[in-house]
């Protein structure tokens, strides 16, 4: 039996009386690219926070590479190769762009990876070139535009050479050209063999990328399937557009 790379079992999280994530089970196979969609407040980011250790689940288990990682601190999870990006960019504003990546290379996992290269600076430059930021190398991160920061965020996550990367709204706040560029770099990363889970609101861009979509509503998985199946799923349309006969008319 092939073990899935990431396995989430019956994950539940309450915030007071509110159930943010309710009994979620999902699996991610190696080499896959999975999209998670859902209306605002559906619990997508909470799910990410639970998986990467920023929140502790009330019940349920998270298994990564056959190892139980439930309740581990975020840095340990990142060092195991399960890396995330943030919906709201979190650059190190005082540091030059290249140093942002050097921070990731200074972690245990990063140091192990660059042992044989000896020059982390060169590795960091390569990471920046991959996302097209080599021009801004010495610029403090606070001078970068929002689109650049989004790309920097991804380069920083990729510097850890993750086995599974969780992207939280990689297209959030980007204009169409930047979105196109981002879609291309994610596709390239996927071709390189990276496994990815993407949370996104821009469905059009997302549907082009992913092989499998999981729909979350009020903390529960309501549908799962290929992008085509999800597009036709009545329940999903209902969640996004509302119930009743006037639903489709309201859109036009």
């Amino acid at each position: 039996m092939i073990m899935p790379l990431l396995e989430v079992e019956n994950l539940t999280k309450h915030f007071g009386g509110l159930i943010a994530v309710n009994n979620v089970c999902l699996q991610v196979e190696e080499g896959e690219i999975v999209g998670i969609i859902g209306p605002n407040g559906a619990g997508k980011t909470t799910l990410f926070n639970l998986i990467t250790g920023y929140l502790k689940p009330d019940s349920g288990r998270i298994i990564f590479k056959g190892e139980d990682i439930t309740g581990l601190p975020p840095n340990k999870i990142a060092n195991k190769g399960l890396v995330r990006t943030f919906q709201i960019v979190r650059p190190f504003r005082h540091l030059p762009t290249i140093a942002n990546i050097l921070v990731a290379l200074q972690s245990n996992r990063g140091r192990k990876r660059i042992e044989w290269i000896k020059t982390p600076e060169r590795k960091a430059m390569e990471m920046l070139e991959d996302v097209g930021l080599s021009e801004m190398m010495m610029e403090p991160a606070e001078n970068l535009s929002h689109g650049d920061l989004k790309r920097l965020e991804i380069a920083r996550a990729m510097a850890l050479e993750p086995e599974l990367i969780l992207l939280d709204e990689p297209f959030g706040g980007l204009n169409p050209i930047e979105t196109e560029y981002m879609v291309k770099s994610i596709q390239r990363m996927h071709l390189d063999g990276h496994t990815m889970v993407i949370v996104e609101h821009k469905l059009r861009a997302l549907m082009k990328l992913v092989e499998r979509v999981i729909v979350i509503h009020y903390g529960e998985i309501i549908a799962e399937g290929t992008p085509e199946e999800i597009g036709k799923n009545k329940k999903v349309i209902e969640v996004y557009l509302g119930k009743g006969e006037g639903g489709l008319d309201a859109r036009s």
Binding site: R90, P91, F92, H94, S107
Partner: peptide
């Protein structure tokens, strides 16, 4: 600059 960001980079 950002403690959470540093944690996401695998920094203890």
């Amino acid at each position: 600059d950002d403690e959470l960001g540093a944690k996401a980079c695998g920094i203890n």
